[in-house]
C-alpha cells in the first residue's frame, strides 16, 4: 500500500522539481528585470513544493530528500514529459506554466479531500502559493493573446504542442487503484484530466484563441477568430504533428530532453553526494 503513496508524492514532487528547474533556466534571461525576479521566485516556489513532497516520500522510504531529488537514475523519475520540455521561447514557457498551474490547481483541490493527513495538509498549503502562480500566468497569457499578431501566433503554436503533452500530467499514478481504495486520492487522474481539458479549452476561447480539439481531447487546432486575424496553426506542420503525446512519464519513460536536464541538475550531487554548503 505504501508503494501507491510513494508513487503519488514522487510523481507530484518530480513534476514540481523538473518544471522548477526549467523555470530557473530563465534567471538572467527573462524579458525584463522585474519578470526575471518574479519568474525566478516562482521557480524557487516550485522547487520548495518538491522538497515538501519529498519529505513525505522520505518518511516512507528512508531516503533523504537530496537523494530523492538528485540521487536517482533518469528512469526513476516520475514527472510528466511536459515538465522536462526545453523552455523554447517565452510564449511556450508561459503557455506551459499556464497549462501546468491550471492542472495543478485542479489536482490540489482534489487532494484537499484526501484521507491522508500529510498529503491533505500539504495540498492546502501549496494551493495558496499556486494561486499567485496562476495569476501570473493568466496575466501574461491575456497580454500576449491580446497583443500583436506575432505574439498570438507564437501562443497558438505553443498551446498546440504543450496541450498534448499536458495529457501526461493526468496519466494514472502507479498503483492508483490502491490509492483510490484507501481514499488517498478521491478523483481518478483521468477524470481530472477530462475536467481540466474542458476548462482549458473554455479558457483559451475566453482569450480569443478558439481551439478545436480531437476526440481524445489532447490535440488542439486553432481556428480563425471572428475578427479573422488569428493565424491558425497549420496542423500539417510535420514538426508539430510528430511531437509525441507526452505520455510515459509516470512510469519513468522520458524524452532525450530529460537526459540533458538530468545531467545538468545532478552534476554536483554525483560528483560528491556528501557535499554540504
Amino acid at each position: 500500500m505504501t508503494e501507491a503513496l510513494v508513487a503519488i508524492v514522487t510523481s507530484l514532487g518530480d513534476d514540481e522539481l523538473i518544471l522548477g528547474h526549467r523555470h530557473a533556466e530563465w534567471t538572467g534571461f527573462a524579458p525584463h528585470i522585474e519578470e526575471d525576479v518574479a519568474f525566478s521566485s516562482i521557480a524557487q516556489d516550485e522547487i520548495g513544493h518538491a522538497a515538501a513532497y519529498y519529505s513525505i516520500a522520505s518518511s516512507l522510504t528512508g531516503l533523504t530528500r537530496d537523494a530523492l531529488a538528485l540521487g536517482r537514475s533518469q528512469g526513476e523519475y516520475r514527472h510528466a514529459v511536459l515538465c522536462e520540455r526545453p523552455n523554447s521561447d517565452w510564449a511556450y514557457t508561459i503557455t506551459r506554466q499556464w497549462l501546468y498551474d491550471r492542472a495543478d490547481s485542479l489536482r490540489l483541490t482534489a487532494l484537499e479531500d484526501s484521507a491522508h493527513d500529510a498529503l491533505r495538509h500539504l495540498a492546502t498549503k501549496i494551493r495558496r502559493e499556486e494561486r499567485y502562480h496562476l495569476i501570473h500566468a493568466d496575466m501574461w497569457m491575456e497580454r500576449i493573446a491580446h497583443g500583436p499578431i506575432e505574439g498570438r501566433t507564437k501562443l497558438t503554436r505553443a498551446a498546440t504542442t504543450a496541450l498534448s503533452a499536458t495529457a501526461g500530467l493526468f496519466e494514472p499514478f502507479e498503483r492508483e487503484a490502491d490509492a483510490i481504495g484507501e481514499g488517498w486520492l478521491t478523483v481518478p487522474s483521468e477524470e481530472l484530466g477530462r475536467r481540466f481539458l474542458s476548462e482549458a479549452v473554455d479558457a483559451l476561447d475566453g482569450l480569443g484563441l478558439p481551439a478545436e480539439v480531437t476526440p481524445d481531447g489532447w490535440r488542439a487546432e486553432f481556428v480563425a477568430s471572428s475578427s479573422g486575424d488569428l493565424i491558425a496553426t497549420a496542423p500539417s506542420d510535420p514538426g508539430e504533428t510528430s511531437t509525441p503525446a507526452g505520455l510515459g512519464g509516470r512510469s519513468g519513460r522520458h524524452s532525450p530532453d530529460f537526459s540533458e536536464l538530468w545531467a545538468d541538475m545532478t552534476r554536483t550531487y554525483r560528483a560528491d553526494p556528501e557535499a554540504t554548503w
Binding site: 525584463h32 528585470i33 522585474e34 519578470e35 525576479v37 518574479a38 521566485s41 499567485y132 495569476i135 501570473h136 496575466m139 497580454r143
Partner: peptide, 20 residues
C-alpha cells in the same frame, strides 16, 4: 520602482521584487 505595461502587472512584479 518597477517598469510595467499597466497597474495590474506592476502589482504582480512589485510583489516579487519588494515583498518576497
Amino acid at each position: 520602482t518597477v517598469t510595467a505595461p499597466d497597474s495590474a502587472m506592476a502589482l504582480l512584479m512589485a510583489k516579487e521584487c519588494y515583498l518576497r
